[in-house]
Design a protein around this nucleic acid. Structure first.
Length: 155
DNA sequence: GCCAACGTTGGC
DNA sequence: GCCAACGTTGGC
């Protein structure tokens, strides 16, 4: 069991958008960063839990909990030249980019802003804070429990 | 809208 | 393999 934090811009895809998907499940397409891809491809497993984070929001922060519900599989948007995620270098016979399916679990009871995360000394090593531009980051079990405590939420 | 941080690309 | 140029992310 691993824990993750995944960012999404609420203007593009919010926690409510995920909730409103059929079965609360959507594929997490468009990851075009090797570190984030490698996490999905090599380490994510069905059942892993995810902090759903709104980036480019006012204010940014953790808004909900989701779950990984598929193994990694090729990100087909890389092959679609009408997609904004089109990547001509991704060969359908050897896909460069992968995605997983994410399922809505719940919103947090108490929103936890980036400022609050930064202000908590127990979270100073959190990958979100040390790798600020990475859209998928790891969360340790201790960090997970601390963030859920701040969010007054249990899974 | 600005810009710092930083990942990627491509020439050499 | 180095590194300058460039593009993107995302907080503010």
């Amino acid at each position: 069991m691993n824990y993750w934090l995944m960012k999404s811009e609420p203007d593009a895809f919010s926690i409510d958008d995920l909730k409103n998907c059929p079965k609360g499940t959507e594929h997490w397409d468009g990851i075009r960063n090797y570190t984030a891809r490698n996490f999905m491809r090599d380490e994510m497993a069905v059942g892993d839990l995810v902090l759903f984070y709104h980036s480019n929001a006012k204010p940014p922060g953790v808004v909900g909990i989701a779950k990984v519900v598929s193994k990694p599989y090729p990100d087909h948007t890389a092959f679609d030249n009408s997609s904004k995620y089109f990547d001509p270098k991704s060969d359908p016979d050897n896909p460069r980019w992968v995605m997983v399916d994410i399922k809505y679990i719940k919103k947090v009871k108490q929103f936890v802003s980036l400022a609050e995360l930064k202000a908590n000394p127990k979270l100073s090593d959190m990958m979100l804070l040390t790798h600020s531009r990475l859209s998928i980051s790891k969360v340790t079990e201790d960090q997970w429990e601390e963030v859920l405590k701040m969010a007054q939420t249990k899974v």
